[in-house]
Simulated scan of single mutants.
Amino acid sequence: MGSALHAEETEMQADHPYVGLWVTEDGHIRHELLPNGRYVEARGTRERAYEGRYEVTGDHIEYWDDTGFTADGDFVDGILHHAGMILYRR
């Protein structure tokens, strides 16, 4: 039953309006929110610096990195505020 619920949540993420690429103004940090509920974060020349899963509830995002690190952020007026950074939709 638990896996069916997770699959349903992942399917819901696929249609979420926040799926896509989010980038800091200088282009150094890049978050790609994938439709399968996974994300890839690039930092500078490190294209896959961090990877993990994410969930969006309303305008709030929670990240669970594959290494065990957790983080969160909020979408405000079409801008992602995450860990002291501001990322813009690309």
Results as ranks from 00 to 15, higher is better:
residue 4 A to I: 07
residue 73 G to K: 06
residue 44 G to F: 10
residue 41 E to N: 11
residue 69 F to I: 12
residue 22 W to V: 09
residue 4 A to N: 09
residue 72 D to H: 13
residue 3 S to E: 12
residue 52 G to F: 07
residue 9 E to K: 11
residue 76 V to Y: 01
residue 60 H to N: 04
residue 50 Y to D: 02
residue 66 D to I: 03
residue 36 N to L: 04
residue 78 G to F: 04
residue 73 G to R: 07
residue 58 G to D: 04
residue 6 H to N: 08
residue 89 R to C: 02
residue 13 Q to M: 15
residue 85 M to H: 13
residue 35 P to M: 03
residue 41 E to R: 13
residue 53 R to W: 06
residue 2 G to F: 08
residue 6 H to D: 11
residue 80 L to P: 06
residue 81 H to S: 12
residue 73 G to H: 08
residue 50 Y to F: 15
residue 39 Y to W: 08
residue 74 D to V: 07
residue 51 E to Y: 02
residue 14 A to K: 14
residue 13 Q to E: 10
residue 81 H to Y: 14
residue 42 A to N: 01
residue 54 Y to I: 05
residue 45 T to K: 14
residue 63 Y to L: 15
residue 22 W to A: 09
residue 74 D to E: 13
residue 14 A to V: 01
residue 90 R to A: 14
residue 78 G to P: 02
residue 12 M to R: 14
residue 62 E to K: 13
residue 22 W to N: 09
residue 49 A to Y: 05
residue 10 T to M: 12
residue 89 R to A: 13
residue 13 Q to H: 12
residue 40 V to H: 07
residue 58 G to F: 02
residue 7 A to E: 11
residue 14 A to N: 00
residue 90 R to V: 11
residue 77 D to F: 02
residue 19 V to G: 06
residue 50 Y to Q: 12
residue 42 A to G: 14
residue 16 H to Q: 06
residue 64 W to Q: 09
residue 89 R to Q: 13
residue 34 L to D: 08
residue 72 D to T: 02
residue 31 H to Y: 15
residue 19 V to S: 04
residue 48 R to L: 00
residue 75 F to N: 07
residue 43 R to I: 13
residue 26 D to S: 09
residue 49 A to W: 03
residue 66 D to K: 07
residue 84 G to T: 10
residue 8 E to H: 09
residue 21 L to N: 06
residue 70 T to P: 00
residue 26 D to I: 10
residue 50 Y to W: 13
residue 39 Y to E: 05
residue 22 W to D: 08
residue 36 N to S: 14
residue 55 E to Q: 14
residue 80 L to I: 08
residue 39 Y to N: 04
residue 41 E to H: 02
residue 53 R to Y: 05
residue 55 E to A: 15
residue 74 D to H: 05
residue 41 E to P: 01
residue 88 Y to H: 15
residue 18 Y to K: 10
residue 79 I to H: 02
residue 10 T to C: 02
residue 21 L to M: 13
residue 17 P to S: 09
residue 64 W to P: 01
residue 9 E to A: 12
residue 54 Y to T: 03
residue 35 P to Q: 03
residue 82 H to N: 12
residue 33 L to R: 04
residue 33 L to D: 02
residue 42 A to F: 01
residue 3 S to K: 08
residue 32 E to R: 15
residue 17 P to H: 11
residue 2 G to R: 07
residue 87 L to C: 14
residue 68 G to R: 06
residue 66 D to C: 00
residue 9 E to Q: 12
residue 31 H to F: 15
residue 27 G to N: 05
residue 10 T to S: 06
residue 58 G to T: 04
residue 31 H to G: 00
residue 5 L to N: 06
residue 12 M to S: 10
residue 90 R to Q: 14
residue 21 L to A: 11
residue 9 E to G: 00
residue 68 G to N: 06
residue 65 D to M: 04
residue 50 Y to M: 10
residue 51 E to Q: 15
residue 72 D to L: 01
residue 79 I to A: 10
residue 44 G to V: 08
residue 50 Y to C: 00
residue 88 Y to N: 11
residue 48 R to D: 05
residue 19 V to P: 03
residue 54 Y to D: 01
residue 5 L to T: 11
residue 2 G to C: 00
residue 6 H to L: 13
residue 58 G to C: 07
residue 43 R to K: 12
residue 32 E to M: 11
residue 67 T to G: 09
residue 30 R to G: 02
residue 80 L to W: 14
residue 86 I to R: 15
residue 35 P to E: 09
residue 34 L to W: 02
residue 18 Y to E: 11
residue 84 G to W: 10
residue 40 V to I: 15
residue 83 A to Q: 13
residue 67 T to H: 10
residue 17 P to G: 05
residue 9 E to W: 09
residue 24 T to R: 08
residue 35 P to H: 05
